[in-house]
Amino acid sequence: MSEITIEHLSVSFTRRRAGAFAALQDVSAHITPQTFVAILGLSGSGKTTLLNVVAGLLQPTSGRVLLDGRPITGPGSDRGVVFQQDALFMWRSVVKNVEYGLEVKGMPRAQRRALAEHWLTVVGLKDFAHFFPKELSGGMKKRCQLAMVLANEPTTLLMDEPYGALDYVTKCQLQDELLALLHTTPKTTLFVTHDIEEALYLSDRVLILSRGRLIADMPVTFDSPRTNDLRLSPEFAIAKQRLWRSLDGATQQRPLSLTGLPASIPEQP
């Protein structure tokens, strides 16, 4: 199932000098099971913070998050997280990384090896099973992280800017692979990104965060299966423009700090 209910969620951090800082302020949303939700926002808008609360890695300052009606008390293997950083166990081979969650569950060696190899095949890393993470490219590392999470068969998938550092074509490939995968094994997915196109292409719904607040909630209704042609269609461009405006509006509210710069560029004589 995995239905996520976010109720008046606020998270503050105490910063050494500036005192309390609100990373999330009164965010509420209801996410129905097996929906793909993109969380869009500029850098520092609180995306990772939101994801960490749902992952159970961070306690809310106020408000709460429910998973299937029960408050989240900590991390669990029902929610798989693909982290923003390349989080892999560097000292384990690729296949042993994928086996980690199964090891935790106490699955016998032969069984978990077979399962890990299955998931490596799914993400296209079968031939790299015995490589160390340092021998993988950025895109391969992301595939490995995904396999690691999928092997645990979570009902919820939390992904934090997984394809942020990849080239455009690789990014599009991985997006298609992800959609195909979720088509066969549907999961509730929260996908953090700052890429408007990525958010639109993948999701059923886009939430926009700006400076800790939820400023927009937009359904995305393109037919599935989605293909690369969609990226070039007029409807897609229109939707992209709408999201762009929302994000841009968010920046305009941001008080620009230009101290130290001249108010206007003096004309050269």
Partner: peptide
Amino acid sequence: ELVNLARTLGAARFRIYRTV
């Protein structure tokens, strides 16, 4: 993030100590 990764994969404290 490595400790968090292990936690989200279900590992308890002692296992994290031993394996991470």
